[in-house]
Design a protein around this nucleic acid. Structure first.
Lengths: 183, 183
DNA sequence: AAGAGGCTATCTATCAATCAGTAGACAAGA
DNA sequence: TCTTGTCTACTGATTGATAGATAGCCTCTT
């Protein structure tokens, strides 16, 4: 049950791909097994239940996402905002994928409790990071509460923006949505 | 196969409820049958396949949603915008439900083709309605393109806002997201 | 009026496929 | 020998869907 082994990584990769395109309830252990080239029983060795797999994927995704962003205090606020929006844009442009936690957050009521908590944690971590960036922006000079609200609105715009973009005109739609958020 | 009969309506009500809370792939004919008080075979009489049921629900939802909004030219632009945002807010506040097509839009890649098309149609109809309202706003004086972009951004904010609100602090979060969209 | 036929809407019973999950054998490597 | 990781083989439950019986009701014909 070593979740950093090569096989475990491949399983998580496949699961993450399915969740971000179809949703948590639209993939099976069979799908994963076929992709990785193993039997379904082997998946259970690494991740005892589907909920465990979902939780591991959510945790890894959040960690990787935050690591890629880097510390909120790094570079200029404007740079950091661009980097943030680009994290979403790239997923859409290169792989036509949703944000993992945007998808899980929508499916909320049909998920195991631990997955729900990890999805929520992604949102709160993102909001903290964004709020710190907005507070550092010298042009804006925001109060703490205003920075929080601005973060909330940006995150909502991006999560909803991914849904709309995938259903309408893809990256073109996404770019129309995000073009003027940097003032 | 009369989809306006009392039973068909109850089936659609139940299906809509499940889709808007759990998603399309997280409910079964058994769930519906239990709610309505019939057998699963009876559902197939009214809606031959799950895709047919999903499509009927999406069509009814869009129709009802647009009817409740009324014509884009009615009342003041500001009134209409408030009414629009309130349509989303009410669903969240009273029943903790997503927008049907926000949910379907997220699950895009795991849905039957006709359901995808109807979900997309909901978005385009909403965007047309919003654009017409924004263009009528005398304070804003927007170009057609700017009105379209503003519509896109509002819809994305609301769809993403529902996801975040359900995962964070409910209506409180939603109100923080929408408080200043009326300038 | 009586009854035959057809339509509507439900039921029982069942299907093959798929689901997540388990038990236990087996092989390779330490 | 013990651990790690995979396999075969299986389970019981659930999935969407089908076949066919049945009952109630309406209409047309005799």
């Amino acid at each position: 049950m070593n979740n950093t082994s090569e096989t475990a990584t491949k399983i998580m990769d496949a699961a993450e791909g399915y969740i971000r395109t179809r949703g948590y309830n639209a993939f099976s252990f069979r799908d994963i097994a076929a992709d990785v080239g193993i039997k379904t029983a082997s998946i259970h060795y690494h991740f005892p239940t589907k909920g465990d797999l979902g939780a591991a994927v959510a945790e890894r995704y959040t960690e990787r996402f935050m690591t890629n962003l880097g510390p909120a205090g790094e570079g200029s606020a404007s740079q950091q905002l661009h980097r943030y929006v680009d994290a979403f844009r790239t997923a859409l442009a290169l792989e036509d994928k949703m944000c993992l936690c945007g998808m899980l957050g929508a499916e909320l009521s049909s998920l195991p409790e631990n997955v729900v908590q990890l999805s929520r944690a992604f949102f709160t971590k993102n909001l903290s990071w964004l709020t710190a960036v907005f507070l550092r922006d010298e042009k804006l000079r925001l109060t703490s509460i205003d920075a929080q609200r601005k973060s909330l609105k940006l995150l909502a715009l991006l999560e909803g923006g991914l849904i709309l973009s995938r259903n309408l005109e893809g990256v073109k739609t996404f770019d129309q949505l995000t073009e003027d958020i940097f003032e």
